[in-house]
Amino acid sequence: MRLKPYVRSLTIALSLVAIAGCSSTGGTQGGTSSGAGGAGAGGTGTSTSGYGSGQAGSTGVSSGAGQMADSRIPDVRTIYFAFDSDTIRPEFQSVLEAHARYLRANPGTQVILQGHTDKRGTREYNLALGERRANSVKRYLDVQGVSPSQLEVVSYGEERPAVRGNTEEDFARNRRVVFAY
């Protein structure tokens, strides 16, 4: 069930292809500070890497590939979970089956299963819970005959909430796994 390094590289390459049409780019700046106690010294920014961010874009595989049902990435790309649970709810089984059909029909396509939690509890433990949710989806797709080499799990825990707020509904919308093609 492990993804091999070359698959990871391929996934990165494909996701870069996927966002090539998007305008969202960003960078990471590493700053420097003067020594401890050096008041008033600012950091000098140096760009350490450039990368794209984006998800749910369309891949080169699907664009212009006709109108067959399995040639388009399914529209619903997020499924939700109950509190403290990684169980696939019955109402989302059809969503997973649609993704399974698409991935079986397009064996060259990779997807990242992004696991998320609500904000309650500690961040690092939530990272582990988000991974457990995404792994639950991965196992489901595996049983549906999707090649493990097409699937990668990345957990964000509570770091990338879909919505703000502290209501039960807000929490429910953040407990999710996102298919990021």
Binding site: G26, G27, T28, G31, S33, G45, R160
Partner: peptide, 10 residues
């Protein structure tokens, strides 16, 4: 305060 890192990702 001094910035150590800024990023589009967590």
């Amino acid at each position: 305060s001094q910035e150590i890192l800024s990023s589009d990702e967590p």
